[in-house]
Every structure is written in C-alpha cells, then in structure tokens.
Amino acid sequence: MRPRKQNRHLPPCVYQKHGAYWYVKKGKWNRLGTELHSALIEYARLTAAQGSGMPALIDRAWPEITRDLKPNTVKQYRYAADQLKNILVEFEPGQVTPRVVAEIRQHYAATPNMANRIISFLRQVMHYAVENQIVESNPAVGLRRLKEKQRDRYLTDAEYRAIRAHASGNLRPIIDICYLTGQRISDILAIRLADISDEGIRFTQQKTGARLLIEMTDDMRAAIDAAKALPRKVRGLTLFCTMRGGRPYSYYTVRTMWNTAAERAGVQDAHLHDLRAKAITDAKNQGLDPQALSGHTTEAQTNRYIRARDTVRAKPPSIRQLSN
C-alpha cells in the first residue's frame, strides 16, 4: 500500500469524498458519515468485526484517544498507531506485557522523542482496553520516559541573513514574520488577513490556545506589505498563500523551501523552528519580555527554553595589578 500524500490523519482505507467519509475495502465503499468523530466510531465498529488482535484494538480506541487532540498531535499519533500495528500484528491485547512494552521502548531508544510518543499512545490504547474490560491491567503504566535531548542550536545573525539572502521571494516574508513574532510556524501560516490591524497581528496558538497580540512595528509592516505584494492569481484569506489556488502554505512546503535556502547558503543544521528560538532569545537579550512573546504560561517554561540556546557572558579579571 502506498503511503498517503493527503489526509494523513485518517486511518487506513478511510477516505473523504463528496462531503463524507468512506471505508473502502476490496473495491466496496461503505459510507461512515459526514462528521469525522462519528465516522471514526463507525470505522472502529466495522474493523473490530474483522479481528480481535492489537491492530483491531488500536482502531477501536482511536476515536476516543484522538477526540480532543490538536491536528499536529493526531498526525504524530497516527504514525505511532501504524508502528504499533506492525510490531503487534500477531499479539492479542492480553499478550502485551510490561516486558513487551519495555522492548518496544528499547527498539526506538535511538529516537527518544518518538519512543516516548509511541509508548504514550500505547498506554492510552491499553487504558481503553482496561475501561472496556478487555484486559485487567495496563502494562504501559509505570514505564519511565526516555530522556529527550533538548535542541540547543542558536541561529546567528549572520546565518539568518545568509539563509534569507538565498531564500525565494515567497519565503522571505515568512522568515521575517517568524522572527518578528516568535510564533510557531503552524501559527504563522494560519495568519488571516483579518488578524492583521494597525495594532499588530492577533494569534490564537494552535498548540496551547493562548491568545496574544504582537504589536505592529515598522519591520513587521514591511514584511506584511512584502507578503501582500507577491503575485497571486487568487488572493486567499491568509497572509501567506499559494500563487495559483490561494490556499494556505503547508508546513512541508515551507520546510522544503527553508531547507533549500539553508543548503544554498551553506548553513548546516538549521531547522525552520530555530527561528522561534532565535526570536525569543534575542527578545530577552534586547530587554524585552520573552515570555509574552512566546505565549508560554509560566516563566519557567520560557527560561528553560532560552537557557538551552543562550550564551552566558562573563568579564575576565584585570591583569594590571599583577604587572606592578
């Protein structure tokens, strides 16, 4: 089966067409419904009848686990679900023991972030199994998380200028707005024209739900004007949109443009998300409020975020008195 290019948040064999969701198996189309949540429940009911193993349990638990999650988290859990289905394809729920869970974690130990995500998802699947009296206990409870390596890359001013100089005309305003607002790329690409006023740009962060206004500056106004001035056959509702269809840019498109610009500039290990780190760190060094800019709920979150990228400055002692 070829990997999906669109609708990656949907389970296998589920497609959206003509305003409804469909389960397609062996050429037969079964209508699941028009609402995603109810469609997933119907999908779980249909697939549950096809087997009682772990893959079937994962499909049954999926609607409950993902009901109130953010789209980005759903995509990550979709990957985790697919990985677990492959690993546990021959397991019944009762055969998943703490030792099996520990072995899965060890298998992904080289990528601790993904390992923790997979175990977290498995823990919720087994919690669903406990609640529905499929198993008596949750084998994933009590397993410690792997220590995740925190990225400490700081993008220097020279590197920023070099990447921007080699960026396409479509990418440059995105780079500038990312830096000037310090917001996550998903929130940058979701900026609507209606969110922009003489006061600034209003954000409702997709990850946290935090609402904030980044005040307008001359630099920000110039970046906004540059984005609006780009040639567009169709003007979309968002500040950044594709030339032909006027649709918002996808994260993957912008990441590809960024990687190309960084490669041409000769800047190594530069991630698109490093722009947010640079903005927050520079805001602190310029005497501004980094917590307000980041939208973090606590000062500790912001301080931890900055310390990984900031450099402590120290003055050396004088040597003059030693010369006398």
Rank of each mutant, 00 (worst) to 15 (best):
G51P: 03
L322T: 06
F203W: 03
G169M: 07
D176T: 11
H296T: 02
P231F: 14
P173R: 11
A223R: 07
N72V: 12
N113R: 15
E92W: 08
Y79W: 10
A277S: 15
L46P: 03
K26C: 09
E299S: 05
A167I: 12
P93I: 04
A56P: 04
A115G: 03
G236S: 13
Q124V: 06
V141E: 10
L155C: 04
L212T: 06
H273K: 07
I119H: 05
W258E: 02
T253Y: 13
H273G: 02
D157C: 02
S186W: 01
Y108H: 15
I319W: 07
F203A: 02
L239C: 09
L40P: 01
L171S: 07
I174V: 14
I104E: 01
Y15P: 00
A158V: 15
R99A: 11
P248V: 10
Q206K: 11
R307Y: 12
A110L: 05
M1Y: 08
Q124I: 07
C241V: 14
D195R: 06
S120P: 01
L146R: 10
N303V: 04
Q133F: 15
A190G: 00
A167P: 05
P248C: 08
S38H: 07
Y160H: 08
R164D: 02
R78H: 08
P98C: 11
A270G: 03
I185Y: 12
N116L: 05
Y154L: 15
L146G: 13
I319R: 10
K25E: 10
R161L: 14
K147C: 01
F203N: 02
N30E: 06
N303L: 12
D195S: 13
R309L: 01
A265S: 05
T47W: 02
L84C: 06
K149V: 10
K25I: 11
V312S: 12
L180T: 01
L40A: 02
T208M: 05
L155Y: 08
R172T: 14
A48Y: 10
N259H: 09
Q183E: 13
A265R: 06
V96P: 01
I65T: 03
V125H: 02
A49W: 09
K75W: 00
L10V: 11
Y128C: 02
A222G: 01
A227S: 14
A44M: 12
A277W: 08
Q6M: 10
R244C: 04
K278W: 09
V89F: 07
S323I: 01
R8I: 04
I191F: 12
E148C: 12
K207I: 05
L322F: 12
Y77D: 04
G287Q: 05
K149P: 00
R255K: 15
H107C: 03
I58Y: 09
P231Y: 14
R255D: 15
H37N: 02
D68S: 08
R99N: 05
H18N: 09
A194S: 13
A314K: 13
V254C: 06
P12Y: 09
R221K: 12
R264Q: 09
N259M: 06
N170C: 00
E103M: 08
V74D: 04
Y21S: 01
